[in-house]
Design a protein around this nucleic acid. Sequence first.
DNA 1: ACATTTTAATTGACCCATCAACCATATTGT
DNA 2: ACAATATGGTTGATGGGTCAATTAAAATGT
Lengths: 155, 155
Amino acid sequence: MPQTAQDTQTNVDTLPLHQFLTYRLSRVQAKLNAQATRILREASGITLTQWRIIALVGAAGETRLSQLAREAALDKGLLSRNLKGLIEDGVIATRPDESDHRAQVLSLSAKGAEIFERTLPVSRERQRKLRAGLTEEELRVFRRVLDKLEIAAEE
Amino acid sequence: MPQTAQDTQTNVDTLPLHQFLTYRLSRVQAKLNAQATRILREASGITLTQWRIIALVGAAGETRLSQLAREAALDKGLLSRNLKGLIEDGVIATRPDESDHRAQVLSLSAKGAEIFERTLPVSRERQRKLRAGLTEEELRVFRRVLDKLEIAAEE
DNA sequence: ACATTTTAATTGACCCATCAACCATATTGT
DNA sequence: ACAATATGGTTGATGGGTCAATTAAAATGT
């Protein structure tokens, strides 16, 4: 693929066009993830995935793996592995589900609740800062676009 | 953490609030990634990362690993490993950089160019579909919000 | 000129995430 | 009641992605 100035110009026109929505989104997301990971490690020594699970369990009170998977669109395997660690660490408590012997009922232990209470304000504060620069209108449009993209991504 | 109806309501108010920007973004992004991966596999049998690299090299004509890493904010290690495979498969050609003996000059081979030419329209068509549901205004705001979030993520 | 500091690239370690295969228990249809 | 099917959960394989350490070659300062 020899490149003349003209060829290069053509590609410069077309490629970022190709990348703009998708690639741009993935970069921003990577940075947001890195930031969240850093904040959570400093605040509570947990990973982002762990925090999501703790937050979901904390919000649900009592729940089950399969329910989390459905509600939050998280992979079963990912949940299973992470829950195993959280249960070993005494962050999440389990009891058998008497109506379904395949399942376990999940809830926060005292330790888990403590982490939840400590981390939630940190997490909220971060969200607040992320939004601080956005107008209501921008937030509305942003959400609408995300909805549309999500639908378009499913085809 | 026992849950009364009241507690649950409080959490429902606060938690999705916590998750909304970040978590919502990561779900949409996961779906877009899955879609891109599927389309690329069907069209050309390549992965998303491979396509990004091929597209970047195709656009640049001749480039180097470090340049790609800088321009596209991709990890050096990720690039190195992926390039190794692409070079072995004869998709990307290399020649020594005579002005810097640490570096290699990268370009698309004939095979790589063929993949590039075949895949670019598929990729563009996808982008077109993703945007089809968006107005100019929505796109503009969406980009602006991404910019703002990216800046906020760096603090 | 030579020691110091940057930079290009590779590699290893590690965690996240997805997918498919699998086992155990529940549910459903007949 | 029992066979077929669906669901809850675990595990293995694989690839994506980040980070730090390392090696080699340039660039820089004195």
